[in-house]
C-alpha cells in the first residue's frame, strides 16, 4: 500500500487502522508545519485494511502494482485475495470445517496447524521456514493444498524459495497430519524451535471428539507443557456430498 503525498492532508486518521503499525507521519518538506503520512513498505503486509477503512477523505491511499515475490504479502494478508493455486480465500484450507464430507482426517491421526504471525504481530516467512524445517526433519507431510506448500523450494526439507524469505505477512499457516506415534516428536520439535523465531505462532490440533480419540493426543499435549484452551471449534456434521 502507498500514500500519495500530494493528496495526503496529514489528518492521521489512517494510522491506527494498520494492524502492523506501518503508517508513520513525517514533516512535509514543502510545509514543515504540516505532516504527511507514509507507509513503511518493508513493514506493510498489503492487507488493505487502511484502504477499506475509507477514512482517507482525499483518497490518498492506494494499492500499487505488486509483483512477485511481494505478491506473497497480499495473498497471505488480504483475505479478499484468493490464492491462485488453491482457489481458497484466506490463508489455509477447508481443514476440519468440511471433514464430514471430505473425510480428509482419518481416525488415529491428527490434523495440526502452526500459524506464524498470529495473533496481531505478523511475521517474515523466514520464521515459517524455521518451523517447517524443524517439522520436516521428523518426517511430517505438509498439506498439499495449503497455500504455504506452494512456497516450498523443497517440500521434503521445508526449505522455502529464497526470494520469499524476507517477505512479511499477517500470518501464514503450516498444515500437516500427525500419526499418533509422532505426537511427542512433533511437540518437542515445536518446543525447540519456539525460541528461535522472531515472531509468534499459534498452534492447533484437530481431533475426533470421542474420548478414546482425543485422550492420547491431549495427554501428550499436556505432558509436553502446552496449554489447551477451553474454547475451540466444533464441526456440526451437517455437510453432504451434493455435486453430481
Amino acid at each position: 500500500m502507498r500514500i500519495d503525498r500530494e493528496k495526503c492532508i496529514g489528518c492521521k486518521l489512517c494510522g491506527d487502522y494498520c494492524p502492523v503499525g506501518a503508517i508513520h507521519y513525517f514533516k512535509d518538506e514543502q510545509n514543515p508545519k504540516k505532516k504527511k503520512g507514509r507507509i513503511d513498505e518493508d513493514e506493510c503486509v498489503e492487507c488493505g485494511v487502511c484502504l477499506r477503512a475509507e477514512v482517507c477523505k482525499p483518497k490518498a491511499i492506494y494499492r500499487q502494482e505488486i509483483q512477485w515475490p511481494r505478491s506473497v504479502r497480499l495473498a497471505f494478508s488480504d483475505p479478499m485475495v484468493e490464492h491462485k493455486q488453491t482457489g481458497v480465500p484466506g490463508r489455509g484450507t477447508e481443514e476440519m470445517k468440511t471433514n464430514e464430507v471430505t473425510g480428509r482426517f482419518k481416525r488415529g491421526a491428527y490434523g495440526m496447524a502452526v500459524e506464524v504471525g498470529r495473533p496481531g504481530v505478523g511475521a517474515r516467512l523466514k520464521d515459517l521456514e524455521k518451523i517447517a524445517m524443524a517439522l520436516a526433519k521428523i518426517g511430517v507431510e505438509f498439506e498439499p493444498k495449503n497455500p504455504v506448500t506452494f512456497l516450498f523450494a523443497d517440500v521434503k526439507t521445508g526449505q522455502l524459495k529464497p526470494e520469499v524469505l524476507k517477505e512479511k505477512v499477517l500470518s501464514a499457516i503450516i498444515e500437516f497430519e500427525v500419526q499418533r506415534h509422532q505426537l511427542s516428536q512433533v511437540f518437542q520439535a515445536i518446543k525447540d524451535v519456539s525460541g528461535k523465531v522472531q515472531s509468534v505462532f499459534s498452534l492447533d490440533l484437530i481431533s475426533f471428539p470421542e474420548e478414546e480419540e482425543k485422550g492420547p493426543a491431549l495427554k501428550v499435549v499436556k505432558e509436553m507443557g502446552f496449554p489447551v484452551y477451553p474454547n475451540g471449534k466444533v464441526n456440526l456434521g451437517l455437510g453432504k456430498i451434493l455435486n453430481k
Binding site: 475426533f208 471428539p209 475451540g232
Partner: peptide, 9 residues
C-alpha cells in the same frame, strides 16, 4: 459433532 479443533496456545 464429528470433529473438533483445539487451540494449543
Amino acid at each position: 459433532p464429528p470433529l473438533i479443533e483445539f487451540a494449543l496456545g
